[in-house]
């Protein structure tokens, strides 16, 4: 019992670290995008001010019980994703919880927040929310296909469904990383990664030009602060997930920061170079090459 409580305290500390790291990453991405546009951009601590500002709004209103629960579900998705994988492998306090089947649970948590948002946004009654949710769910489902196939390939390769075991199997130098030992699954996973990170070209559900801001159109004040916090946690958690799955995990905070930052830059640079896909284009994109690569990865893993 004491062991679990101790681990819970450590996990909360990890959450705080990851949240701040995620907020700084969000601020940094804004600056990078601004520099690509030829602008100077806001200061890096702007996400903190934004959260403080939305928290200091004096009034808030509700459209019903699901409207409350939407952002809560969303942040549960982000925190749950973080809590079931090792942020730093082998560390005493950033190890988090793990059990035999947490790969499956993590896939659920990636999608869980989106579904919670769908219910909350539907309750708000704004048509743009509904459109944004519809597009977001369709695109995320398409992106999950190659990701799930890549996970299957990894599970078959390592004969385990635990992320901690997958990370453990990759220790001992770059030659043991899944990037080297299973390149096809890594390729499928990374192509899905583009869709899951919600940067351009796969950010049609936010579509600032046509449907003002997508699912969160009606969310304001504290709801918005919760969603902004979740944005940073979810962002960082997804980066850590992919680092754990394909790039050998991390044995110190420094390695974790370097690896996740490099992973984020791949998406950000792709985002500033390529324009946004429409939803039917992005779904077609996902069910062509990434899905084919994912099936190939599973077939190869089964062959061995």
């Amino acid at each position: 019992m004491m062991e679990v409580l101790k681990q819970a305290g450590y996990s909360l500390a990890t959450l705080m670290v990851v949240m701040n790291y995620g907020l700084l990453l969000v601020g940094l991405v804004t600056i990078i995008v601004a520099r690509v546009h030829g602008r100077i951009g806001p200061p890096i601590w702007q996400p903190y001010i934004n959260i403080l500002k939305t928290l200091s709004m004096r009034t808030a209103l509700s459209h019903g019980i699901m409207f409350y629960l939407g952002p809560v579900f969303r942040i549960v998705g982000g925190i749950g994703l973080l809590f079931f994988m090792p942020v730093v492998y082998g560390s005493s306090w950033m190890q988090n919880f793990s059990f035999a089947g947490d790969v499956i649970l993590v896939v659920y948590f990636v999608f869980f927040g989106m579904l919670g948002m769908a219910l909350g946004a539907a309750e708000s009654g704004h048509p743009y929310s509904a459109i944004g949710i519809m597009r977001g769910l369709a695109q995320n489902t398409a992106a999950e296909l190659p990701f799930a196939l890549a996970l299957m390939a990894l599970a078959a390769q390592h004969q385990t469904l635990s992320i901690t075991d997958i990370v453990a199997a990759q220790q001992g130098g770059i030659a043991h990383w899944n990037m080297i030992t299973n390149p096809v699954a890594t390729l499928a996973g990374m192509l899905a990664f583009f869709g899951m990170m919600m940067h351009s070209p796969f950010d049609v559900h936010l579509a600032p030009q046509e449907i003002p801001i997508g699912p969160p159109t009606e969310f304001h004040s504290s709801y918005l602060a919760l969603m902004q916090t979740n944005r940073s946690i979810f962002h960082a958690a997804k980066l850590i997930l992919f680092m754990n799955l394909f790039f050998g995990g991390a044995t110190s905070i420094f390695v974790m920061v370097v690896k996740t930052f490099a992973l984020l830059m791949v998406v950000v640079f792709a985002g500033v170079v390529f324009p946004r896909y429409r939803v039917e284009q992005s779904i077609r994109w996902f069910i062509r090459i990434p899905l084919a690569v994912g099936i190939l990865a599973v077939v190869i893993s089964a062959w061995k």
């Binding site: 804004t30 601004a34 546009h37 030829g38 602008r39 100077i40 951009g41 806001p42 200061p43 702007q46 001010i49 500002k53 939305t54 709004m57 600032p208 003002p212 801001i213 969160p216 159109t217 009606e218 969310f219 304001h220 918005l224």
Partner: peptide, 22 residues
């Protein structure tokens, strides 16, 4: 919001929905 004036430096951002804007 373009490169020439860039008000995001001063912490101003466009928000297309009245709920979130101030």
């Amino acid at each position: 919001f373009t490169a020439r004036y860039d008000v995001s430096r001063y912490g101003l951002f466009p928000r297309p929905t009245p709920r979130q804007s101030s």
